[in-house]
Write a protein that binds this DNA or RNA. Structure first.
Lengths: 149, 149
DNA sequence: TCCATTTAGATCGTGTGCGATATATATGTG
DNA sequence: CACATATATATCGCACACGATCTAAATGGA
């Protein structure tokens, strides 16, 4: 009960999150491979399914990724034909990202994929929700967010 | 209470883990930069601090990473002077990874780093432990492990 | 013993992530 | 208006992460 440091890697929160992330990614891989997407590309599309026509900066904020990560990925999504990128006319610095027909169409695969992952966790829906809330809180704390979603 | 799909990215377990992982990584970065390590390099050393003289395969299993990830990283750790790599004499296929004096010495920074991260989470120790157990279980389920640690 | 199979690592190509830097456009100030 | 500053995005270099492939060493029969 003291402030002992864990002996094994598996007892560290950092490693638990790290390896869980990889496990989830590996679970998604074969599912997403069928529609030719990577996981980061998939969640980028999810953000756009939720709100189309977002700026690169808005996507960065939602996905909590840097432009240097997102810009190349958006180019790949564009090459795949799922999105369009266009300079804003009001503010020439901004780039608006929009779904194409193809990108919008991919959304129909989402429910089955989500179901497959949720089942794979072996957790009940309420337990998953609780875990999500806990993780969101942890992320907020550790990244020093006040509440600026 | 139905089987509704989440509306926002933040409500998905996959994204919660994904973004928590990034947040933790960003928290570690400045701490580890002081000793010239990346996070994956750090946990690799942690595994070796726990048990020195492991084969590449044993490290892969513990860290749940592929050889194609670990081999280049081990080479970098060797270049940094923290580990040695040597073919096993019994089984010439195996490569034994061992800590150098320098690599062993880095362990003294570990408690402070861990403390800093744990505090950053803003969670009580028991809550963190519970979260770790939950995540370990989720990872086990989703990666289809029976119990083969 | 001979040879197919298995196992342990290494290598390669592609796609993230991110710090540092660059560029162009907007904004604010005198 | 002129210019310093701030903002939005892009580019570059480096380090993962992993699937696919390769090589060499062990193993397991017939």
């Amino acid at each position: 009960m003291k402030d002992q440091l864990p002996e094994h890697l598996d007892e560290y929160i950092c490693f638990a999150v790290y390896s869980a992330q990889h496990a989830i990614n590996r679970a998604y891989k074969p599912l997403l491979a069928e529609i030719g997407l990577t996981y980061p590309q998939y969640i980028t599309l999810m953000a756009l399914w939720s709100h189309d026509h977002q700026t690169v900066g808005a996507l960065c904020k939602q996905l909590r990724l840097d432009t240097s990560t997102l810009t190349p990925m958006l180019k790949r999504l564009q090459t795949l034909g799922h999105i369009r990128r266009a300079r804003s006319t009001e503010d020439e610095r901004q780039v608006i990202v929009s779904l194409t027909e193809s990108g919008r169409d991919l959304q129909r695969h989402s429910p089955a994929i989500t179901r497959c992952i949720v089942e794979g966790t072996g957790f009940a829906a309420e337990d998953l929700n609780a875990l999500v809330r806990t993780l969101d809180q942890l992320r907020g704390n550790i990244s020093g967010e006040s509440d600026l979603t």
